[in-house]
Design a protein around this nucleic acid. Sequence first.
DNA 1: TTATAGGGTGGTAGCGATACCAAGAGAAAC
DNA 2: GTTTCTCTTGGTATCGCTACCACCCTATAA
Lengths: 341, 341
Amino acid sequence: MSGKAKRNGSADIKMSDIARHAGVSPMTVSRALREPSTVSEKMRRKVDAAVREFSYLPNRIAGSLSSKRSNVVGLIVPSIRNSLYANMVQAISDVLRANGFHLMIANSGHLLDDEEALVSALLAQRVCSLVLHNTTHNKRVRDLVAKTGVPVVETGNLPTEPLDMAVSYSNFEAARAMTAHLGRLGYRKIGFVTLPLRDNDRSEERRRGYFTALKELGLPADPTLVLEAPGGFSEGADALMRLIQIHPGLDAAFFAGDVLAVGALFECQRRGWAVPGRVAIASFDDLDLLRHAVPTVTTLRIPRHEIGRRSAELLVNRLLGASPERVRIDVGFEIVQREST
Amino acid sequence: MSGKAKRNGSADIKMSDIARHAGVSPMTVSRALREPSTVSEKMRRKVDAAVREFSYLPNRIAGSLSSKRSNVVGLIVPSIRNSLYANMVQAISDVLRANGFHLMIANSGHLLDDEEALVSALLAQRVCSLVLHNTTHNKRVRDLVAKTGVPVVETGNLPTEPLDMAVSYSNFEAARAMTAHLGRLGYRKIGFVTLPLRDNDRSEERRRGYFTALKELGLPADPTLVLEAPGGFSEGADALMRLIQIHPGLDAAFFAGDVLAVGALFECQRRGWAVPGRVAIASFDDLDLLRHAVPTVTTLRIPRHEIGRRSAELLVNRLLGASPERVRIDVGFEIVQREST
DNA sequence: TTATAGGGTGGTAGCGATACCAAGAGAAAC
DNA sequence: GTTTCTCTTGGTATCGCTACCACCCTATAA
């Protein structure tokens, strides 16, 4: 019955109202709010008083339309749930906020077509820039980005040909390094549990790194040593058991996701297997958990927070006027050797 | 020297351009895009063709200004990092997206004053509604919400007097129930480790629930059985050790945060203490981890995902025209009895 | 045949801010 | 004292879209 409800506040006060009550022109109010230094002390005080009196909130939608500038950054991650992304998102959010920007967030669920829809939607909202976790994109995404010219940062991997800017580590090098590390420790039969490979360039790269390292170690690149598993504790446990069933001589397992690794570790605890006595366990991504588990777990430390921070800094600089240049920052990674290997 | 860069796409195509190329009026384009059913087949085809030809993206900023309607929901959580919130955020994001809304997210870092600043900022962006995790707010926040009249959902606790709508469980009842549960299992000296209490109504409520249950169990409400600890694995371990130092006879510890509980559990593993033989451990919030740890951990299952989903559904309904009514949904909780108690 | 209705289309006037330019007031230079 | 310059302030024209109303045309009823 009520029909469409009014969407906005009842007492909609606008800048011209404030101007009238302060006895100045709207432009002076606008300036007093955005660039107080260009307005005389007296005017500023009048404006401030009126603003406070009515708890006036400038309408940034109108401001954006008029100035053709927006202060909202769009972010697309595969999953908001995943704590790895959460670390990065937090860092991005903090840097943006410190510079007066906001974050519009969306998750693509690892689907390239959904990414496309989200990019369109965010660009329609006229976000001033984008952060994408993917580094492989639909043609339409690439076209839209090129056409609109918004600054973009890709963060999930180091693309050979970034859309614009990229801040990441090399999934390939990281997986290769950990595998080599295991080899150096003397393990010869090293299994690899990968996250789903479909539409996921990062997983693909990690597997490639694993195989490359095996070759470099002079070990056979046996495809049955590789298992694909969706993330999850049980899945990690399952994967390890299946690997060991196929390869009873397996002496180490490298998990491309930390939850998988911990799941496997718990399974070993349950069975009373010594880690690394019976089998060594290595993980990807330094979840806090891994440092506290018993035994503590060897892993790759990826500076997720730094990725977020630097991505946001690049964007902010660019939005504040830095000249566009293709940047490709490799934040690197670090092998953290612990008790489990 | 490039000065301020242009913020928007170079090839800025607008609705009137599309209209011209399609040989129709701008209004017809607008309608064809938003309410295709009100436009004739022929017109629609002409418009669609032009839209595709230029990959036209309607400017939603202009649309929002004109229609005084926005499709962005603002969300403020204490911390994006925390996986509990992440679950809720994901659910919210999914429901909103399915209905064509977007999410602008910010974190308050548990500070009420920051919440105020963020609420102002989000309202200045003219979000069409708000989701707040806090249930205690500054006066200014309450005033702004009342004045603008945007729909609001509070999710962190069941407030006695909600701003508008609330979807949550009772922190008080949950803590009370778990404490009672421990009493029922025969534990007599039950420690309680709380998260920081400052500016945090949820922590406060949980502690109150703990004390209430103790009283009901006829156990002494000894304040030295309560320890405050910031979240974290080590902090959980520390807290347990300190509690046991003060109370060597401690037979159970109830942790108001799951990470604390797991930290304590790991510490027990490290010392070779039997859980629950030496001390029982109970947790708050059903992190996946708790179901897989060894031993599995008794905890409170809070339907975080459901909280997010129902919050978003309430908002969407209201935004789509449902009449405003104060709603207060108690999603409840569940005690999950596992090996650790 | 004329009246009445109703779907489909277009014209016009904002939405609430900012950009840009013009103009007034003093201060500094001649 | 006049000119020039700088510093503030104000007026006006958008920004790109949608609401609202007017109009036209066809269809059905009287």
